Amino acid sequence: MTEITAGIFDNYNGIDIQIFTIQSKNIVANVLTYGALLQSLFVPDKNGAFDDVTTGFDNIEDYNNKGRKDGSIMGRYAGRISNASFSLNDQEYELFKINGDPPKHSIHGGQFGFHTKIWTPKIITNGVELTYISEDMEEGYPGTLTVTITYEVVENELKITYKAVTDKDTVINLTNHAYFNLDGHSNWGKLNRHEIRIPSDFVLETDDESIPTGEFIDVSRTAFDLRNGVLLTDQILGFVPGSNGYDHTYVLKTEASSVEKLAARVESFSSGRVMEVYTTQPSVQFYTANIFTGQVGKEGVVYEKQSCLALETQFFPDSPNRPEFPSTVLTPDSEFFETARFVFF
């Protein structure tokens, strides 16, 4: 049995930001209308004690002032687009330059991506549905795009469904940017008691600005090989080439398909919590919070470098400029439909 209740989380520019609590026997998820974001996620440990396993903040001002996207929906295009531009139907589209030093590339939808928008909610069976209409040429993207994000909780599973339709050819890549630490807020610390397994044979090769080169790296005999499980100690994170931690696209499949696949399995040997992530998307971006600087979050917890991890199920970065990658083009006669499931044990 899933119970859903609604309340007011905060007021932002005179608008009440609603919070929806979606609760089963095994999971309590709190979702906001701001950014369609997952504000908290409570799951039990090996002794049955519930704790919040995601990062976040207690008010909207902190989400804005601290420049964070914790738990938010990323769009229209999650990840990077090189040189903040792409060509579609022989027309060039320019996007907001927000990534790089100086800014050169686009990332996570631009200056005011979906994570900054106020979404329209609707309570449904087992969860909440949030809708946002992105107008033609918002952030430089063509087409009026109607996006619907659904959060559902059933027993020990949180499911996120992404849907979108457009009135003009466009590109789209949606994901949720939650950060996890399975020890929970009462025992928040480094990831060094977390083991991760990602059943992927390849990661995307990137240049020194994290833009894909188009090549695939075989993970065999490298620090990228997570197929049999790796404990995320400081030593292991230091072995990762180029970034002193993981921020890499793991390839789950090389073409778009509706078939769901295991993207990752994470286990905390301290709390005993296990999380498995399943997705219909062709890749998962694994990131170990390498540039966190100690922001104070919920319950006064300090989010230090590499104290949490993100598993962003998505299409490949820079796909609009890489015709060899699975296509992210959405046309008026089709629907964007992808799912991600977070299952806890």
Score class of each variant (00 low, 15 high):
residue 96 F to I: 04
residue 96 F to K: 10
residue 98 I to R: 09
residue 99 N to F: 09
residue 100 G to D: 06
residue 100 G to P: 09
residue 100 G to W: 01
residue 101 D to A: 13
residue 102 P to D: 02
residue 102 P to K: 03
residue 103 P to L: 03
residue 103 P to E: 03
residue 105 H to P: 05
residue 105 H to S: 00
residue 106 S to A: 08
residue 108 H to M: 02
residue 108 H to Y: 00
residue 111 Q to E: 08
residue 111 Q to T: 11
residue 113 G to P: 08
residue 113 G to A: 07
residue 114 F to T: 03
residue 115 H to E: 12
residue 117 K to G: 05
residue 117 K to C: 07
residue 118 I to G: 09
residue 119 W to P: 06
residue 122 K to W: 06
residue 123 I to S: 14
residue 123 I to D: 12
residue 124 I to V: 09
residue 125 T to E: 14
residue 126 N to S: 10
residue 128 V to K: 04
residue 128 V to R: 02
residue 128 V to M: 02
residue 129 E to R: 10
residue 129 E to D: 12
residue 129 E to L: 11
residue 129 E to G: 11
residue 130 L to V: 03
residue 130 L to N: 01
residue 131 T to C: 06
residue 131 T to Y: 05
residue 132 Y to C: 04
residue 132 Y to I: 04
residue 133 I to G: 07
residue 134 S to G: 06
residue 135 E to R: 03
residue 135 E to T: 09
residue 135 E to N: 09
residue 135 E to Q: 10
residue 135 E to V: 09
residue 136 D to V: 00
residue 136 D to T: 01
residue 137 M to Q: 12
residue 138 E to Q: 14
residue 138 E to D: 14
residue 140 G to E: 02
residue 140 G to L: 01
residue 140 G to W: 00
residue 141 Y to N: 02
residue 143 G to C: 04
residue 143 G to A: 10
residue 144 T to Y: 03
residue 145 L to C: 09
residue 147 V to T: 13
residue 147 V to P: 11
residue 148 T to D: 12
residue 148 T to M: 11
residue 148 T to V: 15
residue 148 T to L: 07
residue 148 T to H: 10
residue 149 I to R: 05
residue 149 I to W: 03
residue 150 T to R: 11
residue 151 Y to N: 05
residue 152 E to T: 07
residue 153 V to K: 09
residue 155 E to S: 13
residue 156 N to P: 13
residue 157 E to Q: 12
residue 157 E to K: 14
residue 158 L to M: 14
residue 159 K to M: 08
residue 159 K to L: 07
residue 160 I to G: 10
residue 160 I to T: 15
residue 161 T to A: 11
residue 161 T to I: 10
residue 161 T to H: 13
residue 161 T to L: 13
residue 162 Y to N: 05
residue 166 T to Q: 01
residue 167 D to V: 03
residue 168 K to E: 00
residue 169 D to V: 05
residue 170 T to E: 00
residue 171 V to L: 00
residue 171 V to K: 01
residue 172 I to M: 01
residue 172 I to D: 00
residue 172 I to C: 05
residue 174 L to C: 10
residue 174 L to Q: 14
residue 174 L to T: 10
residue 175 T to M: 08
residue 175 T to Y: 04
residue 175 T to D: 09
residue 176 N to F: 06
residue 176 N to S: 14
residue 177 H to G: 01
residue 177 H to F: 01
residue 177 H to C: 00
residue 178 A to M: 11
residue 179 Y to N: 09
residue 181 N to S: 06
residue 181 N to C: 06
residue 182 L to Q: 06
residue 183 D to M: 08
residue 183 D to H: 15
residue 185 H to P: 07
residue 186 S to Q: 13
residue 189 G to C: 11
residue 190 K to D: 12
residue 191 L to F: 14
residue 191 L to R: 10
residue 192 N to L: 14
residue 192 N to P: 10
residue 193 R to Q: 12
residue 194 H to Q: 05
residue 195 E to G: 12
residue 196 I to C: 06
residue 197 R to T: 14
residue 198 I to R: 06
residue 200 S to K: 11
residue 201 D to A: 13
residue 202 F to H: 15
residue 205 E to T: 06
residue 207 D to C: 09
residue 210 S to F: 13
residue 210 S to K: 13
